[in-house]
């Protein structure tokens, strides 16, 4: 459900531009992205691989490494800009205000430190608790993500856990300091299908429990439609459409969103061919003039090659960047 519109935003991203300056040219991975997340909201950030989703996540935490750089825009956390904030301030934001869950639990934990030590590190950094209180907090947290015999498991190393268990540990670490916002970067992509829904349920429960907000970065519209209050669709570093989850899934205005939705296999009907979006993401180093999606778009016309469509209001409160948007009920 979309929360009250008057709700003041927890995080406001305005015109964020993150570029990577490589030998073969400048990659405009994120090029003018804006969105807002209210307190307690879940936002889905959706797009194909290479669409700049993860870069948005890392930009928010100030974890863009050379040759990447945030070139402009604002990232306001409760009104305070993180782009211009210094490393010291960002360190207090990371883990305490905003934490992150990575895609692959097999590689996001340090293989040489016990799970307990990696959890304890968060509390040592972000709380004044004494050692025994920290230990208790870690045990409680580990139990609340569904790991039994938690006190014992704290002494174990990551390689003694399965992939799903490790992702539970990662979630436990992310939730430990009661952050206001969790950025989950494809948190279930690397897991078995049977584990995926468990992890998603766990994350939803944790967030609801703590009243935290979440950015769920994924390419999987099925996942996001179950979890998110509203969705932002990225294509080539730009927002092409955003809106409340239900409206965006049922009546998308942008042909790209429609294509993504049609690519979800429908198990109720047997098809000879899976639906797909023709072509692939263009070379982001030298994007053509006009709409970035036009080469793959069945509705493209002469205008699309000349002018980049701005994000404009559509039906049902959706915003879409398209010269020839779809109307409700219209198919590609």
């Amino acid at each position: 459900m979309m929360k009250d519109a008057a709700n003041t935003a927890l995080l406001t991203v305005r015109n964020l531009r993150t570029y990577f300056h490589t030998f073969s040219g400048t990659v405009r991975a994120v090029d003018g992205v804006s969105f807002e997340i209210g307190q307690g909201e879940v936002m889905g950030l959706v797009g194909e691989s290479g669409g700049g989703k993860s870069v948005v996540g890392f930009s928010i935490l100030g974890l863009i490494d050379s040759p990447g750089k945030i070139e402009g825009g604002e990232i306001l956390l409760e009104g305070r800009d993180l782009v211009t904030a210094g490393e010291d301030h960002l360190r207090h934001v990371r883990g305490r205000e905003i934490s992150m869950v990575f895609q692959d639990p097999m590689t996001s934990l340090n293989p040489l430190h016990t799970v307990g030590r990696q959890m304890d590190e968060v509390l040592r950094l972000h709380s004044d608790l004494r050692a025994d209180a920290r230990h208790k907090a870690c045990v409680d947290m580990l139990e609340s993500v569904g790991i039994s015999r938690a006190a014992e498991r704290l002494k174990a190393y990551p390689h003694q856990f399965s992939g799903g268990m490790r992702q539970r540990v990662v979630i436990a670490i992310a939730m430990l300091a009661n952050p206001k916002l969790i950025i989950a970067d494809e948190p279930t992509t690397a897991l078995d299908v049977t584990i995926q829904s468990q992890i998603l349920k766990l994350m939803r429960a944790q967030i609801a429990d703590k009243g935290a907000s979440m950015i769920l970065i994924t390419h999987d519209l099925a996942v996001v439609s179950e979890m998110a209050d509203h969705i932002t669709v990225l294509y080539c570093g730009n927002v092409v459409e955003r809106g409340a989850t239900r409206d965006l899934i049922e009546t998308p205005a942008h042909p790209y969103t429609r294509g993504l939705i049609d690519s979800i296999p429908d198990t109720s009907e047997r098809l000879d061919r899976l639906s797909q979006i023709p072509g692939s993401v263009p070379d982001i180093r030298n994007l053509p003039q006009g709409c970035n999606f036009r080469d793959r778009c069945p509705r493209a016309q002469a205008l699309c090659a000349q002018k980049e469509p701005p994000l404009t209001p559509q039906h049902n409160g959706l915003m879409a960047a398209c010269h020839f948007p779809l109307h409700p009920g219209e198919r590609l």
């Binding site: 890392f58 935490l61 974890l63 490393e87 360190r91 207090h92 934001v93 990371r94 883990g95 305490r96 934490s99 992150m100 990575f102 692959d104 590689t107 996001s108 934990l109 340090n110 293989p111 040489l112 430190h113 590190e121 968060v122 950094l125 972000h126 990662v170 670490i173």
Partner: peptide
């Protein structure tokens, strides 16, 4: 280049801790 280095930074660890406690041992 490993994820756990970035994850350690995302936890708010200092650069020094990330390099010496997480990185060097590996």
């Amino acid at each position: 280049r490993q994820d756990y280095m970035k994850f350690a930074r995302a936890k708010g660890a200092t650069r020094r801790d990330v390099l010496y406690k997480h990185g060097l041992k590996n």
